[in-house]
Computed example of a mutant assay.
Amino acid sequence: MTEVPVAAESLWLVAANVVRWRRYGDGGQELRPGTKSYRGGSKVHVATTYGGMAHEELTTIGRGRHTGAYITIDMATRNLHTFRAVAVYSPAVLRRAAAFGVDGTWATRGYAEELAALLARLAPRYREEHWRGVPHPVPCRCHDCLSPA
């Protein structure tokens, strides 16, 4: 793989999409589109992770559901999918990432690719663990049921 040159005013971050539908309520029998803060399918950038090595919680930067303006919120990893490393050039995202101490010293392509691969493995497991032993609603449109096997 050839290295893509990246301008000095950019960072490599992990991008992901918000699940289109998520299970909700007693026994996970309700479905809600997206999350309270983001529309389903919205692209978000991961600024930091929490939960130790488990990475169960993430700080995300993306356009809010109601205003369309950039917001920064903590959210569960299980509500995201399609993790990938991307070079970010948006001044708004870069400013918000800098507020969390994200800079070019660790926001490298290699680190972003490793973190994206890890989060891509963990997110389905967290979705499964969160609703363990609870049947899916019928019909179900949650991310796992809509995703090709």
Rank of each mutant, 00 (worst) to 15 (best):
T2A: 15
E3C: 11
V4Q: 13
A7Q: 14
A8F: 06
A8E: 12
L13M: 10
L13F: 11
A15G: 12
A16K: 00
V18K: 10
V18H: 12
W21F: 15
R23D: 00
G25A: 14
G28W: 02
G28I: 09
E30S: 15
R32L: 11
R32Q: 15
R32N: 06
P33N: 10
P33V: 15
K36M: 11
R39S: 04
G40S: 12
G40D: 14
S42L: 11
K43L: 13
V44D: 00
H45A: 09
V46Q: 02
A47E: 00
T48L: 05
T48V: 02
T49V: 11
Y50M: 10
G51K: 01
G51C: 09
G51I: 11
G52Y: 02
A54N: 13
E56Q: 09
E56P: 02
E57R: 01
E57M: 10
L58P: 00
L58A: 07
L58W: 04
I61M: 05
G64V: 05
G64D: 01
R65L: 14
A69H: 12
Y70Q: 09
I71E: 11
T72F: 00
I73A: 06
I73E: 05
L80R: 02
L80I: 02
T82K: 11
T82H: 12
F83P: 06
R84K: 14
V86I: 07
V86P: 01
V86S: 02
V86K: 03
A87Q: 04
V88E: 12
Y89A: 14
S90G: 03
P91V: 07
A92V: 07
V93Y: 00
L94K: 09
A97Q: 05
A99N: 03
A99E: 11
A99K: 03
F100Y: 11
V102C: 02
D103M: 04
T105K: 03
R109C: 10
R109K: 10
Y111E: 04
Y111A: 09
A112Y: 00
E114D: 15
L115C: 10
A117E: 08
L119V: 14
L122Y: 09
A123T: 05
R125A: 07
R127F: 08
R127H: 03
E128A: 13
H130F: 14
H130S: 05
W131D: 00
H136Y: 13
V138T: 07
V138G: 04
C140S: 05
R141C: 11
C142Q: 00
D144E: 06
C145Q: 06
L146A: 15
S147Q: 15
P148N: 12
A149F: 07
A149N: 04
A149W: 12
